[in-house]
Each structure stands twice: as structure tokens, then as C-alpha cells.
């Protein structure tokens, strides 16, 4: 805990709404405490802006614990900023130095249309889940939780994938605007578990296809992995690619049923 205060120069993308052009605005921000989180620093900037009769910077946030996936923007060209495996809300000012110049900009991708300033609409992610990112079990009638033993390594691997917070940094960081890391994480969480086997192949195909209606394609740049606040591994992308090919070969229709 250090208490000397810092002075930051902040360049922020301001855009009132998608249909008007945005531009960068620069603010001088003295009196930043190293113990502040990045968002608390923005809170302070906003308070000052409002006292000067200027509209505050709009940015998404909620839990401020790195778990809800609301927050996030580019900080000096990196999604969620310089610290690895850390969401913007968990990034603290002590990671920067007095006099630093920080430029922040919203995620940019066709799948994430801008709403205002630093806020984008990430509902395309919901469409991907909606298409098949679940196990089709209605409420009730589930067998005892201990009926299917799940080897610890498998449960752990599934958990590694399931840790995704849906922040969209992977798309933002990817030079191709691809959502492979998010989609593969959500898919492999279920594909790895016994509970997910029944729908595994259909799930794989529809999630990939839905993903591709909104996002770019992966050429294995690995930027997503580096930006991911939960360090989701690109191994899951490989597993997704494998499952996608397998899904083509699986004969899932019973004899006698006509091909599509």
C-alpha cells in the first residue's frame, strides 16, 4: 500500500451514439491514488467532469470483482490493459506510473456494435449460447448428483473452460475479430462432461455456425488467450476444431431417416 498520488493523462474515446462520429478526448487527471482500481479512477474523472458540467464517460461495469464480465475496453492497445489474467475492474492504478499517458477505446468488432463511449452490445454472445450452449435438461427428474462419477481431471478441465466470464476481450483482442475462445470455452465446458455427450455433435455445429454469423475466423494468433481475464487456453479452440470435424463424420441419423 503506497499513498503518494499520481498524475495521469487519459485519452478516452467519446461517442454519444453509434450514428454520430466519435473522437478521442484527453483529460489531465491529477490526484490518482495507487490503491484505486482503474474504474475507480474513471469514477473520479467522471465526478470531475460532471462538476464542470460535462457528461461523464459511459462504461459498463457491475461486480467490480472480475466475475460478471461487464467491464472492459482497450487500454493502450490491450484488451483489459497491461496486466495478464485481469479484468479492467481488477486492474489497479499501482500497475501504472506517475505521468503515464493512457488511451482507452471500446471493443471494436462487427459483433459488438457500439452503444455509447466505451459501451458495446455483446448480445451476440447470448445468441451463441441460445443456439446450443446448454444441456437440454428440464427442471425436475434429474438423477442423483453422484450417479455419474466424473474424474477430477475432467471436472477440473470443464471448470477451466466454464470460468469464462463472457467479457468479449478475446474478440476485442483478436486481429480477426474472432470469437473462437469464448465459443470454444462455452462449448468444451459441456463437451468434456458426461452430461454434455448426448448433444455434443449438434451443439458443436450450431454453436460454430452461430458464432460465424457474427464474428471473424481464427488464424491462431493467440491474442485472445493473452487478453483473457480468466486465462482460458486456446487448447479449447483446438478441441472445438476437432469436434467440429468429428461432428461432420458422425452418423447421427438412424437408418431410414432421410438426409436433410
Amino acid at each position: 500500500m503506497s499513498n503518494q498520488s499520481m498524475r495521469i493523462t487519459l485519452t478516452v474515446w467519446r461517442q454519444p451514439s453509434p450514428d454520430v462520429d466519435g473522437k478521442f478526448e484527453t483529460y489531465d487527471v491529477p490526484g490518482v491514488s495507487p490503491d484505486m482500481s482503474f474504474l475507480e479512477m474513471l469514477d473520479v474523472v467522471n465526478e470531475r467532469l460532471m462538476h464542470d458540467g460535462k457528461e461523464p464517460i459511459a462504461f459498463d461495469h457491475d461486480c467490480r470483482e472480475g466475475i460478471c464480465g461487464s467491464c472492459g475496453f482497450m487500454i493502450n492497445g490491450r484488451a483489459h490493459g497491461p496486466e495478464r489474467a485481469t479484468a479492467t475492474c481488477q486492474l489497479h492504478m499501482r500497475k501504472f506510473r506517475d505521468g503515464d499517458h493512457l488511451t482507452i477505446e471500446p471493443w471494436r468488432a462487427a459483433g459488438f456494435p457500439l452503444v455509447k463511449d466505451l459501451i458495446v452490445d455483446r448480445s451476440a454472445f447470448d445468441r451463441i449460447i441460445e443456439s446450443g450452449g446448454y444441456v437440454s435438461v428440464g427442471t425436475g427428474g434429474a438423477p442423483d448428483g453422484n450417479l455419474i462419477p466424473i474424474p477430477k481431471p475432467v471436472a477440473d478441465a470443464a471448470m477451466d473452460a466454464a470460468a469464462c466470464i463472457g467479457c468479449g476481450a478475446c474478440v476485442a483482442a483478436c486481429p480477426n475479430g474472432a470469437a473462437q475462445l469464448f465459443t470454444s470455452a462455452k462449448m468444451q465446458h459441456l463437451n468434456l462432461l458426461p452430461q454434455g455427450q448426448a448433444e455434443r455433435w449438434d451443439r458443436t455445429v450450431v454453436m460454430v455456425e452461430t458464432m460465424e454469423t457474427y464474428f471473424g475466423s481464427c488464424t491462431n494468433h493467440r491474442e485472445c488467450e493473452a487478453a483473457c481475464p480468466k486465462s482460458i487456453s486456446i487448447d479449447f479452440i483446438a478441441l472445438m476444431n476437432k469436434d467440429f470435424a468429428k461432428a461432420q463424420l458422425k452418423q447421427r441419423r438412424l437408418v431410414g431417416q432421410s438426409f436433410p
Binding site: 444441456v135 435438461v137 438423477p143 442423483d144 448428483g145 474424474p151 470443464a158 471448470m159 466454464a162 452430461q195
Partner: peptide, 16 residues
Amino acid sequence: DQCVAQGVPFAREYGG
């Protein structure tokens, strides 16, 4: 039971 069926990755012991 419901959550396990949905695929919630609860912590497991080595025996599964």
C-alpha cells in the same frame, strides 16, 4: 441434482 445434470462443474473428489 438439477445443477449437476445441467453440467455445473462442481468440485469433485478423486473418486469422481
